[in-house]
């Protein structure tokens, strides 16, 4: 079993939550497994509900990989404002590259 990776979530209230995530799971799954509120993920990671929206403000370009056209289309429907750093956390895989990344949770998901 590969070593857990520390990633962080920041709530809309500004609180930072550090979690240990298994490489290979999605950032959404890491949030759910660690009981981080505000990531709803109603569809369970099928990229069809847009309720696991996050802002990846502190990540350098290319760190989390390209977005599929499907994710792009879904983000247009997300409840909170779409920003240039918006992603759906179910489409982001936890890896060494995400060490110490901060994912900002929007105020609402629906």
């Amino acid at each position: 079993m590969s070593e857990a990776i520390t990633i962080k979530f920041e709530t809309s209230g500004g609180e930072q939550i550090e979690v240990q995530a298994r490489p290979g799971v999605s950032v959404m799954e890491a949030a759910v497994m660690n009981n981080v509120g505000g990531i709803e993920a109603e569809c369970g990671g099928a990229c069809i509900c847009a309720t696991c929206h996050v802002y990846c403000d502190n990540l350098e370009d290319g760190t989390v990989g390209e977005m599929s056209s499907e994710e792009d289309d879904m983000l247009d429907m997300a409840s909170a404002e779409r920003r240039p750093t918006s992603r759906l956390s179910c489409q982001l895989r936890v890896s060494e590259k995400l060490k110490d990344a901060v994912f900002i949770i929007p105020e609402n998901q629906f």
């Binding site: 799971v25 759910v32 009981n35 369970g44 990671g45």
Partner: peptide, 14 residues
């Protein structure tokens, strides 16, 4: 199976 959970086990208690 862990990836299928609707919520973390702690969620219910919290």
């Amino acid at each position: 199976e862990e990836q299928l959970l609707l919520r973390a086990p702690d969620f219910y208690r919290d």
